[in-house]
């Protein structure tokens, strides 16, 4: 399943010891969230919006450079954006209002601005999240979320996802091997039916595993909350370094609002 040695989710992480890697996870999470908030609060129809997007881009690329995250890694991170791109490309065609001619197509002006804005904002936020994912191990992220008081239940669900992604992945892989060993090639309506049966079987197996894991947890005194280990304190400098990214973005936004 392409899980490789490090596991499907751990593969997002690039080991390193840059200043960004050394930051505790929760200031980084706050920084990325704050950056995304600044980016989305930029008015799309303001004439200075493109300049602001360029400013944000510079800030996030600076952070990526500081973290040693290369352009290839950043571009791969953008793959999750594809559905947004499709939607953003649709907007100029379906939006109302004054229209402009581009290459013989009649497009809505406000649709263009909205679509472009959506695309830019999504791209910028995902770039920041990619830097976070590349410099923070999944379990450190969980620790960060726990520190930020995300509801216990959500943290536990995420934790199980990280732990069991590879287990379920290899189960799926074994089922595929078993299918193909009996001459299944896929394709067509019949193929879909077989795949649906596989998905069903995988669901049942995972559900049963969930029950067994729960039993094992109860057997060791689980009462509904995950006991957290010792947490490192974050000094003012750590917070300052992490929050430099959203602060830079906020400066860009402020400048635009005042000058525009």
């Amino acid at each position: 399943m392409g899980a490789g040695h490090g596991g499907a989710l751990t593969a997002r992480y690039l080991p390193g010891s840059t200043v960004v890697h050394r930051l505790e996870p929760h200031p980084k999470l706050v920084a990325v969230l704050a950056f995304a908030l600044v980016v989305v609060s930029t008015p799309v129809h303001a004439p200075w919006a493109p300049a602001a997007y360029a400013g944000y881009l510079l800030a996030v690329l600076g952070a990526a450079a500081l973290a040693g995250v290369g352009p290839g890694r950043l571009v791969r991170g953008l793959v999750v954006e594809v559905p947004f791109v499709a939607f953003a490309l649709l907007l100029p065609f379906v939006a109302r209002g004054p229209r402009v001619e581009v290459l013989g197509l009649s497009l809505s002006e406000s649709g263009l601005a909205a679509g472009g804005g959506l695309l830019a904002k999504a791209t910028l936020s995902i770039l920041a999240a990619t830097v976070l994912a590349a410099t923070t191990e999944p379990r450190a992220l969980l620790r960060g979320l726990q520190r930020l008081r995300l509801p216990q239940l959500l943290v536990q669900i995420l934790m199980f996802m990280i732990r069991y992604a590879d287990v379920v992945g290899s189960e799926l892989h074994r089922m595929r091997v078993a299918r193909e060993s009996r001459g299944f090639t896929g394709g067509g309506l019949r193929g879909l039916r077989v795949l649906a049966a596989t998905a069903g079987a995988l669901f049942v197996r995972s559900y049963e595993r969930g029950e067994r894991v729960h039993l094992a947890m109860l057997s060791r005194g689980y009462t509904g909350t995950l006991p957290a280990g010792p947490a490192a304190a974050v000094d003012a400098r750590g917070w300052a370094v992490a929050l430099a990214l959203p602060a830079a973005a906020a400066c860009v936004l402020l400048t635009g609002t005042l000058a525009g």
Partner: peptide
Amino acid sequence: DDQLFMPTVGEDVAFGPRNL
């Protein structure tokens, strides 16, 4: 794989004692 559900071995072994 049912018994070891925490992200690392150390955290998993610590799970029971912490519950205590």
